Amino acid sequence: MTSRPRRLLTALLTLLTLFGVTALSGCSDSSASGDGGKITLGFSAWPGWFPWQVAQEQGLFAKNGVNVDLKWFDNYTDSINALSSGAIDANSQTLNDTLSSASGGAKLSIVLVNDNSTGNDKIIARDGITAVADLRGKKVAVEQGTVDHYLLLLALQEAKLTEKDIQLVNLPTDAAAAAFVAGQVDAVGAFAPFTTKALERQGSRAISSSAEFPGAIPDHLVTSQKLVKEHPKDVQALVNTWFDTLTWIKNNKDAAIKIMAKRGGVSDEEYKTYDAGTTIFTRQQNLDAFTPGVTAQHLDFSANKIVDFITSTGLAQQRPSLDGLFDDQFVKATPQ
């Protein structure tokens, strides 16, 4: 597996301003040229986003009348920066990262909930460490600013600890997992598929996961607000394609797993172990999530909780505006 750091909480907008879009390796210079024009859609390593690969290989974008340049990013951070700067039209990213980009001034719209992480983000510890409270004074590797850093902070908070109570070792996610397997650190925060690597260490175990924090890590299709305003038919076609893809996967499970496992760089059997840890959202679950509410099931509630957390911990410098962020018109218009 190549290095695929996932879900950065800081958008690095200062670097974008200094160096411009051309500094982003692997990014497309194109943007939507109009309804029927080419849409550049970014995605990276996460089980909830691999269905886009199925959509491409099965011709489902074309079936829905949208011309998509599906852009794979080895580095998830690059995809976030590409969307924030306008180098791509849409991206697969978390609510956490979208809020961070919005706090830096990016005008974005969440038009679809792909999934919730329900166990595929984990804090994994060596033999002898059985609970998060046991991490006091221990070396914990995690990529600072990612949602696994966020998960670690949530877990520490629940255990009545803070980041100051551990020795945080900042490493890219793939390197963090490798360092843990090599015995260089006591614990690691990682996401699938790197959790598979981390658990190769004899006696290791997950002591916390995203399953314990429902709604904390939702993943989305995020577009520029400009795309929504100027080319709504293209956005609708992307959302329609997603639900068509889920139907195809349901009816062709083995073939779909083969496609997604290959894109993830893991075996079919390894990919199957990720199933329970990523809850793919149905159309109804999307509608429920977009509805305002007072539980983690609802995006507005989760967003405000995440903003409180990332601003209080310094992961974001200012509260972003939520105006225009949650746009459910396309899910509502999807054929049932």
Rank of each mutant, 00 (worst) to 15 (best):
K63S: 11
P51R: 01
F43Q: 02
F73D: 03
S28D: 05
Y76C: 06
S33H: 10
G34A: 11
S92T: 10
W72D: 03
N81V: 09
N116F: 04
A125R: 05
D127W: 08
N116I: 11
L99I: 08
N116P: 02
Q56N: 13
A62D: 14
S28F: 03
D78W: 02
Q58T: 07
S101F: 04
T118Y: 06
T94Y: 00
K38E: 14
G48Y: 02
K71L: 08
D78G: 03
P51N: 02
G59A: 08
G104N: 14
Q58Y: 07
A55S: 06
A125H: 08
S109D: 00
V113Y: 09
N75H: 13
W49R: 00
N116G: 01
G104R: 15
S30H: 12
V111P: 00
F73Q: 14
G104T: 13
G37P: 01
A102S: 15
S100N: 06
G86C: 11
G59K: 01
E57N: 12
D35Y: 09
D89F: 10
K63L: 12
N116V: 11
P51G: 02
A82N: 06
S84P: 00
V111Q: 05
A62M: 10
S28G: 09
G37W: 11
S92N: 12
Q93C: 04
Q56P: 03
S109L: 11
V111F: 04
Q58E: 14
F61H: 02
A102I: 02
W46M: 12
A90R: 03
L83K: 01
K107H: 08
G59D: 07
A82E: 03
A102R: 09
S28L: 10
A45V: 10
D74T: 07
Q56E: 15
G119Y: 12
S33M: 06
V54N: 01
L95F: 03
V68I: 13
K38P: 01
I124N: 01
I80F: 12
L99G: 12
V111L: 03
A32I: 08
N64R: 04
L112Y: 07
E57A: 06
Y76A: 11
K63A: 15
K71Q: 14
E57V: 04
N114C: 10
L83Q: 00
W46G: 04
D89K: 09
D89L: 05
D115W: 06
F43N: 00
S30Y: 06
S109G: 14
F43S: 00
A32Y: 02
A106L: 06
I110A: 00
